[in-house]
Design a protein around this nucleic acid. Structure first.
Length: 419
RNA sequence: GGAGAGAUGGCAGAGUGGUUGAAUGCACCGGUCUUGAAAACCGGCAAAGGGGCAACUCUUUCCUGAGUUCGAAUCUCAGUCUCUCCGCCA
């Protein structure tokens, strides 16, 4: 969420920034609402002051007048809050501004590759897709999931279930022991205000699984990513500078409706309603955001290095970035069956954008209370890592070699064979 | 699910209708003292929003939302959350 004061004082950079995202914003309207809002506030405050003085004086002859003032205040207040609401609604739906080194472009075609790493495997046979491999092993069952649950779910069985667990533990251990993240096992359900904090609401209501509850005024949602719940751990707080940076990691299931992606990746486990993801979140001083983004991205690629999976790193262009991000690196892993790279991690700096929504602040060295910076990144998506391992480590007979780094987590087996 | 207690500033904790934005303690910051530090002493220290070039000033805020009153942290109602006891169950 942007600060209306900042918009007021530097409207051109907001115009430019949002233009880069190809979003049409009625700034005239924003300024008008802001102006009226402030006008009403002033009127209201004058009356409040008058009223306060009467009540202090305890002069009974003025009590009637005070009642009248109260009525007026009420009228002005309701006009003011209407306008404030309208203004807030507009502001809440504006995405973050792209950082100045983010390439300009409308969609993924303008993303820029930054580096390539790892060796693309050379198969002497036609590599199979992960779902063919998994089904042939009898360890992935999509049809069964459709029967019990619906489309875009899967049963993972036997050694592949073990692989899923192994990947998750391996990634967690690496981030905890090597990369300095603290492990968290968070709730998988978040309230609407939590979802607002990280930017899922109000705009992306449709992408979320909402729980149906008959009591409680809060709306509750299954988390679409651990980012939501981890980042909100600092919500409504003024935290100590000394505890920054905070680095947290969690492995959680994620739930997404994937509305609007009908027909996309309908086969296999690339795009599921439920998947495991290891998520990193950093809370930092805002001027550290970009350095932390590089650090976090390196933590993610480290996993792929250790798993010896070929990947590339790209920077997302302005139009392809998520709502809250000011700068995003995607990491894409090589998938032999598709003969291309597919996203396996996305690391974003959100600057103070989420912090403002969450009211997450700290005292800086000048003793000012300012908003923190927040970052999040996958490290990595577990489901897609299974896909990548199946496809890159497949053998001609349909068996799967286990990457060296995972063996300790897989009871030291070398290979997954059909049973 | 039944019964009770509670929610106040970074933390702890007073305050039950009238200059209370809120005692006190801790933490934190500045100063005196000291070779330096500690201790002691003195002073400062909430947030959000509005106005002002600024010094500064005004308004709001004691879980949330309604209500009573000229006036609410304090009274009433509803809600949320926390704690204790009992019951039930992973």
């Amino acid at each position: 969420m942007h600060n209306i004061k900042d918009i007021r004082s530097d409207i051109s950079s907001f115009k430019d920034g949002l233009k880069k995202r190809f979003i049409d914003v009625d700034f005239e309207k924003i300024l008008l609402l802001d102006e009226n809002n402030r006008k009403f506030i002033q009127e209201k405050e004058n009356l409040e002051k008058e009223k306060k003085e009467i009540s202090k004086s305890k002069d009974k002859s003025l009590f009637e007048k005070s009642k009248e003032i109260s009525k007026k205040i009420e009228e002005i207040s309701s006009s003011q809050s209407k306008i404030k609401n309208e203004l807030d609604n507009i502001l809440a739906s504006l995405p973050n501004l792209p950082y100045n080194d983010v390439p300009i472009g409308k969609d993924e075609n303008s993303n820029i590759e930054i580096l390539k790493s790892g060796k693309i495997p050379n198969f002497t046979f036609k590599p199979k897709s992960h779902y063919e491999l998994g089904e042939n092993l009898n360890m992935l069952d999509f049809d069964l999931a459709t029967k019990t649950t619906g489309s875009r779910f899967v049963f993972v069985k036997d050694k592949l279930a073990l692989l899923e667990r192994a990947i998750s533990n391996f990634m967690l251990d690496t981030h905890i022991n090597l990369n300095g993240y603290k492990e968290i096992s968070p709730p998988l359900i978040a309230t609407d205000s939590t979802m607002f904090g990280t930017g899922q609401l109000p705009k992306f209501d449709n992408d979320q699984f909402e729980l149906k509850l008959d009591d409680s005024n809060d709306r509750k949602f299954l988390i679409p990513t651990a980012e939501v719940i981890l980042t909100n751990m600092v919500k409504d707080q003024i935290i100590n500078k000394e505890i920054l940076p905070i680095r947290m990691v969690a492995s959680t299931p994620c739930f997404r409706k994937e509305a609007g992606s009908y027909g996309k990746d309908t086969k296999g486990m690339i795009r599921q309603h439920q998947f495991y993801k290891v998520e990193m979140v950093s809370i930092v001083e805002p001027n550290q955001c970009l350095a932390e983004l590089d650090r976090m991205t390196n933590c993610a690629t480290k996993i792929l290095d250790l798993l010896k999976l070929p990947y590339r790193k790209i920077i997302l262009c302005s139009g392809d970035m998520g709502f809250s991000a000011e700068k995003t690196f995607d990491i894409e892993v090589w998938l032999p069956s598709e003969n291309k790279y597919r996203e396996i991690s996305s690391c974003s700096s959100c600057g103070s954008f989420q912090a403002r929504r969450m009211k997450a602040r700290y005292k800086n060295s000048k003793k000012e209370t300012v908003f923190v910076g927040t970052l999040n990144g996958s490290g990595l998506a577990v489901g897609r890592t299974i896909v990548a391992i199946l496809e890159n480590y497949q053998q001609e007979d349909g068996s799967i070699l286990i990457p060296e780094a995972l063996k300790p987590y897989m009871n030291n087996i070398d290979k997954i064979n059909k049973i």
